[in-house]
Design a protein around this nucleic acid. Structure first.
Lengths: 213, 213
DNA sequence: TCAAATCCTGACGGGGCGTCATTGACGCCG
DNA sequence: CGGCGTCAATGACGCCCCGTCAGGATTTGA
């Protein structure tokens, strides 16, 4: 019997694409993540419930728990997602950089641009009085922090800069980026360049004045 | 009839101290606040329950709601309490200060000392993995922020410093204080002087390098 | 001593959470 | 194909916590 005239309703997979089970699983996980992003945006973290999220997907309440243990975990997954997407940008800046100044400038600029872009998708309709929830120390976020620290270390020693308290410096830089970034998001027009100039100026200027341990 | 031999079980108040009703009310409010401090310390914000708090006071569950609307509100009251106690210290530093450098140094030192002292009372036995909850924008906290900003403004213009983006500067300084403070709390011995030197050095060094708006 | 005012009390209804027995779809193999 | 074992989806259920409220106790003022 020839195969030529044979065309089944659903053609067989010629690639090594995973089966339907696997596909719906990743689709569901993504659907829950998307729904969570929207619900957190509209109701805020405290206001949102697991059932608000799952309702948007059309799945049953129990199904949520096949993918995430709790509202907290799905929120962390969103943070992780952001960090995972930001990480390569940071790496690019590290490889482009010739010295501490250029790395800091590039990284700050990348962060503020990233923040501004995310912001469009993210903050839909925050209820008044609710502060955005703390960005938690999720694995990917921790990794980004560690990467910043290591990049600082390498680039500083590459240019034979005097020793400095790296933990404090990293913490301070991230803190400045976050706070100035937050303030930037509230301004119109959203001036990522101005924010970068401020943060970079502060830290670059401060670096030589730091106490030597 | 003479009063001389007469001594009632409960002597009449000779001062203008408020009546018993008022006294138990403030006592209860304080008891709830103390219990909340302890429970948040032991269970963390998420783990704590309104009933955990009220149980420690011996009062009935309904009584809690005569004083605070929710767990969130009593937490904010704790933050407010801290801010209210820190405010006068900040004011003293402002009045002592002769210029921006001395104000910054004094304020930072005051903050780190305050933080270290609070820490003893505060962080009893935090469950692993739980980040401390975001310090919320409660009225008193907002007031402290505004006070820092205003102090910066006055002291900078007093010494005819070039103009600067005050919002960014305030945000950045508070951010640095908070993050470096957090890191400081994790170190042994707890070196408030070192943390002060770092934060002050960074900001004082960075100030002249800031972009001029 | 009494009535009014105050506020403490704990039982109750409501609702979100996380689980689990059941069900139906999928993948595999003869 | 067809039958079977596996696995995710389902939604009802029990649990726990929340915030309220009617009833009771205590204080206040007369």
């Amino acid at each position: 019997m020839s195969n030529i005239a044979y065309f089944p309703a659903m053609p067989p997979r010629e690639d090594n694409r995973p089966g339907k089970r696997e596909r719906t699983k990743t689709a569901n996980r993504q659907a829950i993540l998307d729904a969570a992003r929207q619900v957190f945006g509209e109701l805020g973290y405290d206001g949102a419930t697991v059932r608000d999220i799952i309702r948007l997907t059309g799945l049953a309440s129990g199904t949520f728990y096949n993918y995430y243990k709790s509202k907290e975990e799905v929120f962390d997954a969103l943070a992780d997602d952001g960090a995972r997407r930001f990480r390569p940008l940071l790496r690019v800046e590290f490889e482009k950089a010739t010295d501490f100044a250029s790395f800091l400038r590039g990284a700050m600029r990348a962060y503020f641009d990233f923040l501004a872009a995310e912001h469009e998708t993210w903050r839909v309709n925050r209820p008044a009085g609710e502060t955005h929830p703390q960005v938690r120390a999720t694995p990917e976020v921790t990794a980004v922090f560690a990467e910043v620290r290591e990049a600082f270390e390498r680039v500083l020693e590459r240019e034979h800069a005097p020793p400095v308290d790296l933990d404090y410096l990293t913490a301070a830089c991230i803190a400045v980026a976050r706070e100035v970034g937050d303030k930037m998001l509230e301004r119109r027009p959203m001036d990522t360049q101005g924010a970068t100039a401020f943060a970079v100026g502060l830290i670059l200027g401060g670096l030589p004045a730091l106490p030597r341990p």
